[in-house]
Design a protein around this nucleic acid. Structure first.
Length: 788
DNA sequence: CGTACTAGTCTTTTT
DNA sequence: GACTAGTACG
């Protein structure tokens, strides 16, 4: 069959090796998705494998969707029978069917991080733990990593071996687990853990799935944790047709329990494994690959490999350093706008990647100023937003009244005059009767001491009950719309004087459209299936890449994606690599960051621009950071530090890359900065000063050559007046004091005439012809235009 | 019971 | 700087 001619030798080997365990070490851009899809099609078409017997596990829903699409194109029929999904959705499907075998109800709800945190809080209160000493955050982290390692509360307690703090954590863990069970809920980690438990405790269920999944494929294998590994291991045990694809250099989820030894030691667990390396890269230019290779070779914990391409050298990697993060953002926005004007790029070919979500803010400001359409991936997950969680809490309560947490969330939202005192009385009654909070409310008239509140509770119960009865003959869309109507949720929001009401209403509208889309895509769209799907949606899943917009996202979100033009922002020691990783005594912390750098660099197909700032505002304080060690690891001959003919040139002589070495030695000379120099801070602990904090004078130099600029501290203040307050700016869509034809003043662009004002859901879009700067489209909330 | 203000924490990344 | 939890007050 000619189809397979499109593959290179190694890829073909990986496709044709269908029996027994296979480890495919697939470098970035080496066509691993292609290999997986062809492998599936080969199994079906050439080896006559029943599509029903194939399981493909991916990392995100987006990846799963793409894989299914590509398999659909390759395989004539039966493709819909293949089970392609994420670890979490796979487990949900299994548990919905069989979890009753281990004592849970099959209509369990799924808790997100926010829900879990609330439970932890409750538990701490019950155990009267001091949350100053035992931070909810670290308790959650401890419990989560225990679950990642399949450690039960009992085992945790045993391991504590008398350590008081550990024993306390074990106690919290146990209580947390009890509470989840009482609410008939599972958290993210439980989805995996309970499936493993089910397989271990109920052999016939395991057997059933072993028989079904005779061919198993796992994508992004380097990111699996111990529990996920065990799950796969159990499933594959019988037929041993397990094919895992991954790249140890792209393992970036250690904080989430990913165990890199799963990939490094695959051959120990499966001695008969066949190992195939894919090293030809089809994505990037040689310069980009060389840079990536040179950076990653500084890691010790890895399998040796070297990517190559026949794509040609390409341009050098552009490196720019700025005085402030603000100038960095401005540069990136200007640069993309410039390329767009010259028609050198489509916006959707550009992405800006950064280490932390907070960095998106400044970039957004300047993209808006330039009128460049963009999307920010991530930040607060859509389904984690307050108003969305409220709506979902209603839906969950209608679906399943067992979940006290959801009931508590909405009982007084919008305000019904039901306060803490009332809830406590109901809770006491519920505890006494051993029923759920909601069920207790149904018998409000029997609860002593409620007084007038009993009526209010009745109203709430009637509301929920009426929706329950409508459930079977209402569409989800109708249910949702009527819910908003009957609860008066949006109405109450509109009447409140909160600031971001238009945004939040837009989010609720968005939720309705998601429900509509869900019903369109699924024939049997039930409330329960909707809630289950929604719990496992990642931000990246909603990126379709069709719209012509620049994408802004964290390096983590960018894994698996590629763009012609990539901007890596904030390449500073203390930002990237993160401060945390630098001070960590474990040297592999930096290695994880380096892998992240590797992921970032290898996202670029043609042009890569790396930027950093000398000073940056971080949680209210200005930091002064040196250039990232990762930039220094890129050989100088691959970098260009200035572009001929570039209009704005903001580099001081001393900042050209060759000279910057002296900057580093200067840095490591300061007592406060030891550990940030070339020695990488090996094992040094306890220097209390964060990178650059409180030491502006030491870093700032007098040689300012760019005469169009004020010293950056002053400039920072100026800019605050101009475009500060991003959040508030977008949210409060008040009345405008100007309209078309009016003269206005802008902090940066000076005076101009308003040409048009267009109303948008969040804000007003204003077109202004500036006297000096030409025509600009901007959002009123940000632009802060003054009528003159 | 609801509100308005204050103090403390936080960020590194997310299914 | 921004968000949140906790508190004091009406």
């Amino acid at each position: 069959m000619g189809t397979y001619d499109m593959l290179n030798n190694k890829q073909r080997e990986a496709v044709f090796k269908t029996n027994g365990p296979v480890l495919i070490l697939a470098g970035a851009g080496s066509g691993k998705t292609r290999v997986l899809t062809y492998r599936i099609s080969y199994l079906i078409e050439q080896e006559g494998v029943n599509p029903w017997n194939i399981l493909a596990i991916t990392f995100t829903n987006k990846a799963a969707g793409e894989m299914r699409e590509r398999v659909d194109d390759l395989v004539g029929h039966g493709a819909e029978q293949i089970w392609v999904s994420t670890f979490h959705s796979t487990c949900v499907r299994i548990l919905r069917r069989f979890i009753d075998r281990i004592g849970y109800d099959t209509n369990f709800t799924i808790y997100d991080t926010d829900d879990s945190k609330n439970i932890i809080k409750e538990v701490c209160k019950k155990l009267s733990l001091d949350t100053k000493q035992y931070k909810e955050r670290s308790l959650m982290a401890a419990i989560s990593s225990a679950k990642d390692e399949l450690i039960s509360p009992q085992e945790f307690l045993r391991n504590a071996a008398g350590d008081f703090v550990q024993e306390k954590i074990a106690e919290v863990y146990q209580a947390y687990q009890n509470e989840l069970k009482r609410n008939n809920a599972l958290d993210f980690d439980d989805l995996i853990g309970k499936t493993v438990e089910l397989f271990r405790k109920v052999p016939e269920v395991l057997e059933h799935y072993q028989e079904r999944f005779r061919y198993i494929m796992v994508d992004e294998y380097q990111d699996t944790n111990t529990a996920q590994f065990e799950l796969i291991h159990l499933l594959a045990q019988k037929y041993r047709n397990l094919c895992v694809v991954g790249d140890d250099d792209q393992s970036i989820y250690k904080f989430r329990g990913a165990n890199i030894s799963n990939i490094l030691d695959f051959e120990k667990v499966f001695p008969e494994a066949c190992v195939i390396k894919l090293e030809q890269n089809y994505r990037s230019t040689q310069n980009i690959l060389d840079a990536a290779n040179q950076v990653i070779r500084n890691n010790r914990e890895r399998k040796e490999k070297a990517l190559w391409t026949d794509k040609g050298q390409g341009s050098k990697i552009h490196f720019r350093q700025f005085d402030t993060a603000r100038e960095e953002a401005e540069y990136i926005a200007d640069e993309i706008a410039r390329k767009k004007r010259r028609q050198e790029v489509r916006l959707k070919d550009c992405a800006v990647l950064y280490r932390t979500n907070a960095q998106a803010r400044l970039l957004e400001e300047y993209f808006i100023m330039q009128g460049i359409p963009y999307d920010v991936v991530g930040g607060v997950n859509f389904y984690a937003r307050k108003e969305i969680k409220d709506m979902l809490a209603y839906l969950k309560t209608i679906d399943n009244g067992q979940d006290d947490l959801q009931v508590r969330r909405i009982i007084n939202v919008p305000k019904r005059g039901i306060g803490a005192a009332t809830i406590n009385k109901v809770q006491a009654y519920a505890d006494e009767q051993e029923i759920s909070l909601y069920d207790a409310m149904r018998f409000a008239d029997q609860i002593p001491g409620l007084g007038k509140s009993a009526q209010k509770l009745e109203g709430f119960v009637t509301l929920i009950q009426s929706f329950r009865s409508k459930l079977e003959f209402y569409s989800l869309e109708k249910l949702m719309k009527e819910l908003i109507e009957m609860t008066g949720y949006v109405k109450a929001m509109e009447e409140s004087d909160e600031e971001d009401v238009p945004d939040r209403i837009a989010n609720i509208d968005e939720l309705i459209s998601k429900i509509v889309a869900f019903e369109a895509e699924n024939e049997e769209a039930t409330l329960r299936s909707f809630l289950a799907e929604v719990a496992l949606v990642a931000d990246i899943d909603n990126v379709d890449g069709q719209e012509d917009k620049v994408l802004l996202m964290t390096l983590h979100s960018a894994k698996g994606l590629e763009f012609s033009h990539v901007y890596l922002a904030g390449l500073e020691d203390g930002v990237f690599p993160s401060y945390m990783s630098i001070v960590d005594e474990d040297p592999t912390a930096i290695e994880e960051e380096r892998r992240l750098a590797y992921v970032g660099i290898t996202r670029a197909k043609d042009e890569l621009t790396v930027t950093c700032a000398r000073s940056r505002m971080n949680r209210g304080e200005t930091q002064y950071n040196p250039v990232s060690r990762f930039v220094r690891e890129i050989p100088a001959n691959l970098l260009d530090t200035r572009v001929p003919g570039e209009k704005r040139f903001s580099f001081r002589e001393s900042d050209s890359f060759e000279d910057s070495e002296s900057d580093y030695s200067g840095f490591s000379g300061f007592s406060g900065f030891s550990g940030f120099g070339t020695d990488g801070g090996r094992g040094k602990k306890g220097f209390g000063v964060r990178p650059g904090t409180e030491r502006p004078k030491a870093v700032k130099k007098d040689k300012t050559t760019a005469q169009d600029k004020k010293p950056f501290l002053v400039r920072g203040l100026d800019s605050l007046n101009g475009v500060g307050g991003l959040q508030k700016g977008t949210s409060g869509k008040g009345r405008l004091e100007y309209g078309a034809g009016d003269r206005v003043r802008h902090v940066k662009f000076g005076d101009g005439t308003v040409l048009a004002v267009a109303e948008e859901p969040r804000d007003y879009k204003v077109t202004v012809a500036f006297d000096g700067y030409g025509q600009k489209i901007m959002y009123a909330g940000f632009a802060k235009l003054k009528k003159i």
